[in-house]
Simulated assay, not measured.
Amino acid sequence: MTDITSKPRSIALYDLLYMIGIIAISFSSIFVRWSEADVAVIAMYRLYLTNLLMLPFVWKYRHEFMRLSARQWRLLALSGVMLGAHFLLWMASLRLTTVASSTVLLTLEPLLVMLGSYWLFRTKANRMMLWGLGIALVGSILIGAGDFSLSGDALLGDVLSMLGAAAVAVHMLAGKQLRNEMSAFVYNFAVFFLAATSLAMYNIVLGNPFTGYSEREWGLFLLLAIVPTLFGHYLFNWLLKYMNAAAVSMAVLGEPVISSLLAWWLLHESLSGYQLAAGCFILFGVWLFIRHGKEKV
């Protein structure tokens, strides 16, 4: 691995790319709220269009694709289906609750990954990590209680966001194993395609139309593929080679902050003091967990 400690310019470049990634993923909720299509269709085309943009580079990795074992394909399928479920659940939550509540609840992902790692790999947590888990859970309860007082739909949106966080945690646990065995490109391309295909089957069952969308909708699908997916999620996977994994995972703390500000500016959503307080609980709890985590998850 490249020794970047002796290259200040490289460090500055990686920090810049890291900030670009945080800003990019923060736009995801805005694009979803602007779209009028069914959330399953939005998620499907977001991923298929990402695959289309990556297609010119597939030939370079053809031999690696051909060497994948049946076990690896099964894990890729699990990771892909869970990623598809994550997008479906989280995007649905944005139609029911505020961007602030939905995105801040997604920051529970590292905590859920920790619990999954303990169950699957017997990865242990220290006392400070458990404190972080408890504080974040208190914040989640506060958000749920506050949204329940507003409307049942808002509470349902919170639940969907938390289920989306659980789905992406399973996706990350499967990916943790697979990324040790294959390149980032092969993993991402296969998972994006399998996730999109699982969503396509879901749309067929529901009878959602695949065509007939306006140019504006196709533009939003493409923006979702380019901005939060390629310049966000894929960029973070690439940075894992050059930055500490704990530092990269800190990106989950930046998304709700920037997303909430963007929602306030572009969607005219208000931020209540209650939401801010509960959000701070969650963000501090997740920060505490990541800061004192000894195992990269």
Rank of each mutant, 00 (worst) to 15 (best):
D38K: 12
L253Q: 06
A40E: 10
G80V: 01
S151E: 13
L111W: 05
L224D: 05
L49W: 07
A92Q: 15
M172N: 08
S10A: 12
F192A: 01
M250W: 14
F192C: 03
A37Y: 02
L173E: 06
V252T: 08
L137N: 05
A251G: 00
F121D: 06
P228M: 05
L261R: 09
I141P: 00
L266C: 00
N51F: 13
V227Q: 08
G254T: 04
S140H: 04
L220W: 11
L49T: 01
L76D: 03
L230K: 04
I4E: 03
H86S: 02
A24F: 08
L108H: 06
V205W: 15
G134T: 08
T50K: 01
F192M: 09
T107P: 05
Q177S: 05
K124F: 09
F281P: 00
A246W: 03
V168R: 06
I135S: 02
N208S: 12
R33Y: 11
L47A: 04
F87G: 00
R95S: 11
M91V: 02
E269T: 00
M182F: 08
R179M: 04
A100F: 11
L53H: 10
L160H: 12
S259Q: 05
D38L: 12
G84L: 02
P110F: 05
M162F: 15
H292Q: 09
L163D: 08
F210P: 00
G293F: 01
F87H: 04
R67F: 12
S270M: 12
F121K: 10
S93V: 06
L106T: 14
S198I: 04
N180P: 00
L239E: 07
S270F: 12
I141C: 06
R127Y: 15
K60F: 14
G254Q: 06
Y274E: 10
Q177F: 15
V286P: 05
A263E: 07
S140V: 13
R62S: 10
F192S: 06
A184M: 13
T97D: 09
F185Q: 03
L96R: 13
G139I: 09
S259Y: 13
D158R: 13
D38E: 14
S101E: 14
L223K: 12
